[in-house]
Amino acid sequence: MTSAKDDTLERRLGWILRGGVVASTALLAIGLVLSFLPAGMSFAPMLLQAGLVLLVATPIARVAASAVSYLIAGDWMFVVLTTIVLVELGAAVAAAIHAQ
């Protein structure tokens, strides 16, 4: 049990998650306000889309960062597990793109 390594990883993943949520919420808030201002209506939809894409990408980035961290540590069991999760999320993205 490498408790200290897990702690560092948990802190790093925390930064990714916080950063993703703060940035996406800011985009959504600006997009929301601009949707109701005549001057901002033309690019509000773009900001809203960007905010939603960033929000949905945040947990994916967190899983990818975990995979890289386990790879560097040579913890193969967890490299395999996190890679499977990434493939599953990739399948969801592929299904979404296929639907369009």
Binding site: T25, L28, G31, L52, L55, V56, R62, V85, V93
Partner: peptide, 28 residues
């Protein structure tokens, strides 16, 4: 739960079932 919700959200998003304005309002 973030990962759980992501797989679902992505699929709805791709099917055009995520209206941006109400989603933004709900998230905030």
């Amino acid at each position: 739960i973030g990962v759980t919700a992501t797989a679902g959200a992505v699929i709805y998003f791709g099917h055009g079932q995520l209206p941006a304005l109400p989603a933004a309002a709900a998230v905030i």
